[in-house]
């Protein structure tokens, strides 16, 4: 029940923070169950007494107060969460207020976002919207992998970049934009190709999800193989002209990219965006869906697109869904570390 500035001293691990003034408007959002056993505390016990009475009036009947408050807890040598984690979240209660209102997010979810690490392979057409929305949501660390520099022909679809960034490395362009959008986000920049030589080094740093925004098959298969082996989920997106596909490979279970497409195309049979063209807004749709999947994985909410390929036809404005299963002979799935 303390104010934001008091959290600089630390807080009790696992506690939900609400200032006393926020209690009545926000109680239902952060405490959905009236049967929940609630312990309220403040600095010394005065505000928690008021809060307890208010909660009982609101219908919560299993409320107790922490005698002596946070200072007594601390003086007894009981565990305290360091201030950095708490103040990062609560000083942003205004920034994230609209998503904190969602019961599926709340302050617990926001802390999950703040602690999450999401890697983006490619900060191009798909990576641009994905990175911007993940940064906006408050993902703690974003890794950006892209060896390219910004080109004029990128700008119709790669909304992370702009005219002032032409000839700049894409990861540096993205850093500037993301820092302006949300300075809370830590960035790890990899201005290099994601390839067999770099994949293990980059993925072993540990990631909660990877956004596959690559623009070629070899990179996608390398990502799949190394991520599967490490049990790291991949939020897949791919585009061609007016069509897009989205699916999620959970990493430690369920089918992977090789289960879906075991055989890469013969070289020269499938052209790139440069050769075949692409509607600029198309990766905006698909990349945003990939970010949606990544947020759901981090928050642990909703149903991921595991075993479901979502196809999108921009000309018909139609989505369709097709189910796919694990291939029992898949070499990537067989290489998974047993995590059971």
């Amino acid at each position: 029940m303390r104010e934001d500035f008091e959290l600089q001293l630390g807080h009790i691990p696992g506690a939900i923070h609400l200032a006393l003034s926020e209690l009545e408007p926000r109680a239902r959002a952060v405490l959905p169950s009236e049967q929940a056993r609630i312990v309220v505390y403040c600095a010394r016990g005065v505000r928690s007494a008021k809060a307890a009475k208010l909660l009982q009036r609101l219908g919560y009947h299993q409320v107790s107060q922490l005698e002596g408050g946070f200072f007594r807890w601390k003086s007894l040598g009981l565990p305290i969460e360091p201030p950095a984690a708490a103040s990062q979240v609560t000083s942003n209660s205004e920034r994230y207020s609209r998503q904190l209102l969602l019961t599926e997010v709340g302050s617990t979810g926001q802390q999950k976002l703040a602690q999450a690490r999401v890697l983006l392979i490619g900060v191009g057409g798909l990576g641009s919207p994905a990175a911007l929305y993940l940064a906006g949501a408050g993902i703690g660390t974003l890794g950006l992998v892209d060896a390219d520099v910004v080109e004029l022909s990128n700008l119709h679809r790669q909304i992370m970049h702009d005219t002032s960034r032409i000839d700049t490395k894409k990861v540096d362009s993205a850093k500037a934009r993301i820092e302006a959008a949300n300075p809370n986000v830590e960035l790890e920049l990899y201005a290099e190709r994601f390839c067999p030589e770099s994949a293990d080094r980059i993925l072993e740093r540990g990631w909660d999800a990877v956004i596959d925004g690559a623009d070629n098959f070899p990179t996608r298969y390398t990502l799949n193989d190394v991520a599967s082996r490490r049990g790291i989920p991949v939020c897949h997106g791919s585009i061609d002209r007016f069509e897009g596909r989205v699916t999620t490979f959970l990493g430690n279970r369920g089918p992977c990219y090789r289960c879906l497409f075991p055989q890469p195309p013969l070289p020269g049979t499938v052209g790139s965006c440069a050769e075949r063209g692409v509607l600029g807004v198309l990766p905006g749709v698909i990349g945003t869906l990939q970010a949606t999947e990544a947020l759901k994985l981090v928050l642990g909410i909703g149903q991921p697109l595991s075993g479901r390929l979502l196809t999108y036809d921009a000309l018909e404005l139609r989505f369709a869904e097709m189910r796919y299963g694990s291939d029992p002979d898949c070499p990537s799935c067989q290489a998974r570390v047993d995590r059971s």
């Binding site: 499938v270 075949r276 196809t311």
Partner: peptide, 10 residues
């Protein structure tokens, strides 16, 4: 019956 080649654009 849907005939679905892989695509890689990103």
């Amino acid at each position: 019956l849907a005939v679905i080649p892989p695509v890689a654009g990103g």
